[in-house]
């Protein structure tokens, strides 16, 4: 798309000639029909339901088709506390989704464990096992925040390249689209995080 001059394009459009590219058309279609996977984990899911209902109406952005099967979904909204017992199932669902797929971590718990971070049974953020595209802070985030995240994701999809070295991750054949499912260990999940996607913050020693 960078090949055509923006001014020339505007000028052409004024004359009734619409110039586009395969990439633009493709991304335009994709970003306006993001189908989320239908599952909720805690109170954030209530806000997600409110977002889908008539008052906030996620259908305005093409995301109203909540799919009950990961095979038909493009977007995983991790809405709520991920317990360690639930984490392998989340990763498994993510693995079962078809590429291209995106993840929104909704709320403090999905980002970092939130108020339950110091507990023995809560995962300190879903980004330990799967890559996250958009994080929404809040406890729980308001529906506007989820819509904002949704629009950010649309912007992100719109910017994805189909060719070249900077092409989208899901088009690179050497990039993984499945991630190892953690195992239930005797004291904790094994491994406690997937180092390929997650780097814990460095402890500053004083």
């Amino acid at each position: 798309m960078s090949e055509i001059d923006e001014k020339l394009r505007t000028e052409l459009q004024r004359q009734g000639v619409w110039v586009t590219s395969m990439q633009e058309l493709y991304n335009w279609g994709r970003k306006n029909s993001i189908w989320p996977l239908q599952f909720g984990l805690a109170c954030c899911a209530i806000e997600m339901i409110a977002t889908a209902a008539s008052r906030y109406d996620i259908a305005r952005f093409g995301g109203e088709v909540f799919r009950p099967s990961p095979r038909q979904a493009d977007l995983m909204i991790v809405a709520g506390t991920v317990t360690k017992k639930m984490a392998p199932q989340i990763v498994r669902l993510y693995n079962q989704m078809a590429d291209p797929k995106y993840v929104i971590a909704m709320g403090a718990c999905a980002i970092s464990g939130g108020p339950f971070k110091q507990g023995y049974n809560v995962l300190k953020g879903i980004d330990r096992y799967i890559p996250v595209d958009v994080y929404i802070p809040g406890c729980p985030p308001r529906p506007e925040a989820l819509l904002h995240a949704f629009m950010e994701l649309q912007r992100k999809i719109d910017e994805q390249k189909l060719t070249g070295a900077n092409k989208a991750e899901h088009l690179k054949t050497d990039q993984p689209s499945e991630f190892p499912v953690p195992k239930f260990g005797e004291h904790d999940l094994e491994p406690a995080a997937n180092c390929a996607v997650f780097q814990p913050p460095v402890i500053e020693r004083t």
């Binding site: 017992k85 049974n121 239930f184 004291h187």
Partner: peptide, 15 residues
């Protein structure tokens, strides 16, 4: 609540 493979008892005071 915990998984079957888990071996500890988390509500014990010496957990």
């Amino acid at each position: 609540l915990m998984w079957d493979e888990f071996e500890d008892y988390p509500m014990r005071k010496d957990y």
